[in-house]
Nucleic acid binder design. Structure first.
Length: 648
RNA sequence: GCCCAUGUAGCUCAGUCGGUAGAGCACUUCCUUGGUAAGGAAGAGGUCACGGGUUCGAUUCCCGUCGUGGGCUCCA
């Protein structure tokens, strides 16, 4: 600690040159970063970059440097604020629950967490108490100090404090010197930087508790994680909490039930029932993809649900995917051996179709599409409404093509993906290249080569992407396409994957124009991905107000009284004959009540008819969320309905 | 699978410091025939998730199972 002190005292007389915001000036050696800024500027600063490296505001400048301020409003600044909030929480927790060890506590994309090893796991009831203590510690405006020491000193220090996880982290570190942050009497091993004092933490909230494994490995101890978030000011925090609230109100599990789209029953965990309205949504999406298939040259097939294990041994699923497969047998089988399995993927079935006849280069690319039902034995703890299921339907297809055709096929599928998401109202796509995982089939050389092909395809199409190392499927690398929804959450839906292994395992071949025999390449791809998940995301994205072509109920005719019941029923019948999903609400309820219910059901066109309309053959149209009702003839209404676009 | 929480009417939730239960909405019937987000009345509806244990007695306390939720891990 004495060394830390001495670093802070400037050597009188010597000067260094610093550049701040393109202005260069001389300051005494040892000047603290904070002193380069006037108090007004300083109030929004939480840290600085010195020659590109993030440091505390108390950092003493020892040599010439370029200094950039890091404001709390910048992404870096916000992350620092949240990291400091995590420290504040840890301090509060340790003061309230003695015997609790700290582990790690980083900032995340929209908040922070800290993993603790407490004598007893925390529960939600602990949060208000911790939050209150945090407020007290923030109000005390404790100075946050950075201490530097040797690794050995730190190990000794944390041993003494009984922080065994920190000692473990220290033992794994390479650096000879480490930093420890101190606020009040509380200390934590940390790289930093941090805000100058706890008073900077003005707006934070603790959100939930959860279990988490030490270092993310399920063989390790289960720790107790507390999630929270922090913002520069109360207004921003409130806004964030409001967004979380909105997300809750749009939860597809809630809306799915309220809008009578889906049902879950404990007797089929992870397996949604699609109710009549949900089935319309499902089938309309499938119909849309089928229209695209005609345009993009896919041929649809229907393949078996259940296969003998021999198939899975051939495909490689038996070795690498068996844990996630439902194994079964038939009632005649006396051996008890589970010799069949429900398919978890369609690809082996399509390989069998390919292999069922001698193939010529003239047939390629052969694009086989399949809406087959897949089953995967997802572990019970991961199931989540429609977005994480055990029974699923993908808009799955496998393209068998020559090596030379791969680029064109990947391009076409990227195009299809962009078309679909634009049509469905998702503004942006984020792409990732998922590379060779630990468990994989095929040589590393083939992997690197195919990874390059996918990267080049994205570059060729002017698409930016990140690399997701080790996240490829076991049979090949993939382009993962993430879609941010209306609530800024990201979902992986579409995917394009290259596969050189499956063709090998199934011995797939084609005859070239020269008469020689070649192995085709297989491309796995899905656009909506898993329909169940897609529908879950779409429900949350739209809040249940689907575009007209997807709306389970497109028009509802509301009668004002019994005298116009026949007119209302005739009208809805006529619209149904024209192919629209129409219904009539002729109950003896007040109009306001019927309007309310139709609005809550998110019916896009609400048509009101009373005696005025019945006598003139007109309707009063109220569009969902629409302002004023409009009067028009039935033919005009039909024209409006007919003008609603049907994509594809 | 693991940690924590949780399971009361179709839905959202009260409640019982251990003596087998209640509201609102929805549902059924009746009254009401109303002009753009909730008209009124009556009725029906529950093995308090399931299985054990403690107890004179368990929906309530304890244990287990299953489901659900928040995460971890995995992945579409």
């Amino acid at each position: 600690m004495s060394q830390a002190q001495s670093q802070l005292s400037p050597q009188a007389g010597s000067e260094i040159t610093v550049t701040v915001s393109a202005c260069t000036r001389k300051v005494p050696k040892g000047t603290r970063v904070a002193d380069l800024f006037d108090p007004e500027q300083r109030s929004r600063l939480v840290a600085a970059r010195v020659n590109g490296k993030l440091v505390d505001l108390s950092y003493p400048l020892e040599q010439d440097a370029v200094v950039e301020p890091v404001s709390v409003d910048s992404p870096d600044g916000l992350a620092i604020l949240r990291h400091s909030a995590a420290h504040l929480m840890a301090q509060a927790v340790q003061s309230l629950y003695p015997g609790t060890q700290v582990t790690i506590g980083p900032a995340t994309e929209d908040g922070f967490y800290y993993d603790f090893a407490p004598p007893r796991p925390f529960t939600a009831e602990d949060l208000p108490k911790i939050e209150q203590r945090m407020r007290e510690l923030a109000a005390a405006d404790l100075k946050v100090e950075r201490l530097e020491m040797s690794r050995e000193e730190a190990i000794e220090l944390f041993e003494r404090m009984g922080e065994h996880y920190k000692v473990e982290i220290l033992r794994d570190l390479d650096e000879p010197r480490v930093s420890v942050y101190k606020q009040g009497d509380w200390m934590d091993l940390c790289r930093g930087p941090h805000v100058p004092s706890t008073g900077y933490l003005k707006a934070f909230a603790l959100l939930n508790v959860a279990g988490a494994y030490w270092r993310g490995d399920e063989r390790n101890a289960m720790l107790s994680r507390i999630y929270g978030t922090a913002f520069p000011d109360q207004a921003a925090l409130k806004e964030h909490l409001a967004l979380l609230e909105l997300a809750r109100s749009r939860d597809h599990r809630k809306l799915g039930r309220e809008l009578e789209l889906v049902l879950f029953d404990p007797r089929a965990p992870g397996s949604p029932f699609f109710l009549p309205k949900g089935t319309i949504l499902f089938n309309e999406l499938v119909a849309y993809v089928r229209r695209l298939y005609r345009r993009y040259g896919f041929k649809e097939v229907i393949t078996p649900q259940l296969f003998r294990n021999e198939l899975w041994r051939t495909s490689g699923h038996w070795d690498l995917f068996r844990d996630a497969m439902f194994l079964t047998t038939d009632g005649e089988n006396k051996t008890g051996e589970l010799d069949y399995a429900l398919k978890p993927m369609n690809c082996p079935a399509h390989a069998l179709i390919y292999a069922s006849q001698k193939r010529s280069y003239r047939e390629l690319p052969l694009r086989l599409a399949d809406f087959g039902r897949l089953h995967r034995a997802e572990r019970s703890g991961v199931l989540h409404g429609l977005t994480r299921v055990r029974a699923m339907t993908q808009d799955d297809a496998h393209i068998f093509c020559t090596m030379e055709q791969v680029a064109e096929e990947v391009d076409a599928n990227l195009k299809m993906v962009r078309e679909v998401y634009q049509t469905l109202g998702f503004e942006r796509l984020e792409l990732k290249l998922a590379t060779m995982p630990q468990e994989h089939l095929g040589s590393e050389e083939t992997w690197r080569q195919t990874e390059r092909m996918l990267a080049e395809a994205m570059e060729r199409n002017g698409l930016e992407f990140e690399v997701n190392p080790g996240e490829g499927a076991f049979y090949g690398p993939k382009i993962e396409i993430y879609v941010p929804d209306a609530l800024k959450r990201k979902w992986q839906l579409a995917t394009i994957q290259l596969d050189f292994n499956m063709p090998e395992r199934f011995g797939l071949e084609y005859v070239t124009s020269q008469g020689s025999v070649q192995r085709p390449v297989m491309i796995h791809r899905a656009v909506l991905g898993t329909l169940e998940r897609f529908i879950g995301v779409l429900i949350e994205h739209t809040g249940g107000a689907f575009p007209f072509w997807l709306a389970p109920e497109q028009v509802r005719v509301l009668s004002i009284n019994e005298r116009v019941e026949a007119y209302a029923l005739d009208l809805s019948a006529r619209l149904e004959r024209l192919g629209f999903r129409a219904s009539a609400d002729v109950r003896s309820e007040k109009l306001g009540f019927k309007v309310r219910q139709a609005e809550l059901a998110k019916v896009p066109y609400i048509v009101v008819v009373g005696e005025r309309e019945a006598s003139t053959g007109t309707v009063s149209l109220r569009k969902l969320k629409g302002e004023k009702a409009q009067s028009m003839s039935v033919d005009q209404l039909v024209d409006i309905l007919k003008s609603e676009p049907l994509p594809g």
